[in-house]
């Protein structure tokens, strides 16, 4: 996505504030995680749009969840979702978070993220390119705006 186009969409959505994002790996392979990090670094540089990765879910507007949910992470994902203040949006990044991907039929895999917490935006890909991740976050902005205006519960 072009810089100007993205700015335009952010403007259209009327989102006045910077978007803070918390990244949580629930049992993925790291592929999506390094692409999220790549999106923050100079070539993609999401920070110029005010999108910032934060170190605590208590500060976040958006949860980026990567990976299929493993047994020990099951309760922790719920806890982190509960710790994120409303209004919040959850983005499932990658095939594993969306559908559990290649990880099925195991004693330690509890399934995709939407088995555990509600997911608003799905970004497919294994792993999705940084552009796709940014696109997913922009879709989340639109949703967050609507939540703020009280149009959706």
């Amino acid at each position: 996505m072009k810089h100007a186009e993205l700015l335009e969409r952010l403007k259209l959505s009327g989102f006045k504030r910077a978007l803070w994002v918390y990244h949580l790996n629930t049992g993925g392979c790291n592929g999506c995680d390094i692409e999220i990090l790549a999106a923050l670094t100079p070539r993609y540089d999401v920070e110029r749009f005010g999108i910032k990765l934060v170190g605590s879910p208590r500060h976040a507007d958006v949860l980026l969840v990567t990976g299929t949910v493993t047994r020990p992470m099951y309760e922790r994902v719920k806890r982190i979702y509960a710790q994120t203040p409303d209004p919040k949006v959850v983005i499932a990044i990658g095939g594993c978070a969306s559908t559990s991907g290649v990880f099925y039929d195991s004693y330690n895999v509890m399934g995709p993220v939407d088995n555990v917490i509600p997911v608003d935006v799905y970004v497919p890909g294994c792993p999705p390119r940084p552009e796709a991740i940014i696109d997913g976050v922009v879709k989340a902005v639109v949703k967050l705006e609507r939540l703020l205006e009280g149009k959706e519960g």
Binding site: T68, Y104, S106, Y107, V109, M110, G111
Partner: peptide
């Protein structure tokens, strides 16, 4: 007891089993 823990997250895989 192992099968109690195995979750079939993909529907067609459970059918195959």
């Amino acid at each position: 007891k192992l099968s109690d823990y195995v979750r079939y997250t993909v529907a067609w895989e459970a059918k195959k089993d």
